[in-house]
Amino acid sequence: MAGLLVYVHHDDGEFSPQGLGLLAKAAGLGGEVTAFVAGSGIDDGWAGSLGGHGAAKVLVADDAALGGLSQPIVDALAPTAAEADAVLFGAGVVSADVAAGLAARLGAGIACETTDIAMADGGVVATRPALDDTVMVESGFSGGPGIVLARANAFPVREGASGTAPVERVPVSVDDWSQRASLTGRETAEGGGVDITEADILVSVGRGMGGPENVQLVEALAKALGGEVAATRAVVDAGWVPYSMQVGQTGKTVSPKLYIACGVSGAIQHKVGMASAGTIIAINKDGNAPIFEFADVGVVGDALAILPKLTELVAARKG
């Protein structure tokens, strides 16, 4: 098949918004857009709903081996992908693994962290911000399909999507070696608690806060402001706070009116989850931290010393 092939990842019966947004982007480029869905027990009607998001056709690879890990998906996708002009992948842990495995399988060029896609000179051109977003790099492809991996939240999902596209099932052949890794369990975020995506004010804790004993300083400021506490991946992985509080690529995407980042360096994987906040205030000892590049107010100083005073002043003002 010629044209653009968009791999749409899904999990727990829901399509990834990253894949849906990419479909909408691809549909706006003028060519024929085909969506590719891989899994076990895929419903045709559900797959066809991708038509509302921009797919002209949906290819379904359905096999018991397609249980959520990337390597069997590469096997299922490669024959179709080899014939495409370009294969597009939304951000995501498994989605990125499929994209990378496919690039190796096809010997194809791959562009990562893509935030814009265009057609030029008869091919796909991918643009990404690089080096802490200080430069934009535009890449094209030669000698076969180009593989484009998007940055998280780079492409918005079409609102009020409706409509369906024809669904076609493709033959699937999965190698033995691709099935050696197995998903044996999951630890999902616990239910209940606060939904940080609904908060107007978030105060977030990063590794620069030193240790879990200092999270209370962030909690106190959040309470004084009437906001909630959020966190970076590093402190969640370190066990300071639960995963449900994580903002970023593998966590929540938030856009509060005010986001106060305490001891947060501002790595890309955190930035993609909070860059659309109304006002960003950063407090960090390291004056070279990337977060100062996109904060509205950057305080170069020790958050451990500044937070108690800030909390006191805010409480006094509000009280």
Binding site: D11, L69, V93, G185, R186, A189, Y243
Partner: peptide, 10 residues
Amino acid sequence: QAEHGYDLIE
């Protein structure tokens, strides 16, 4: 860590 929490893989 993935988008929904943690995967356990062998």
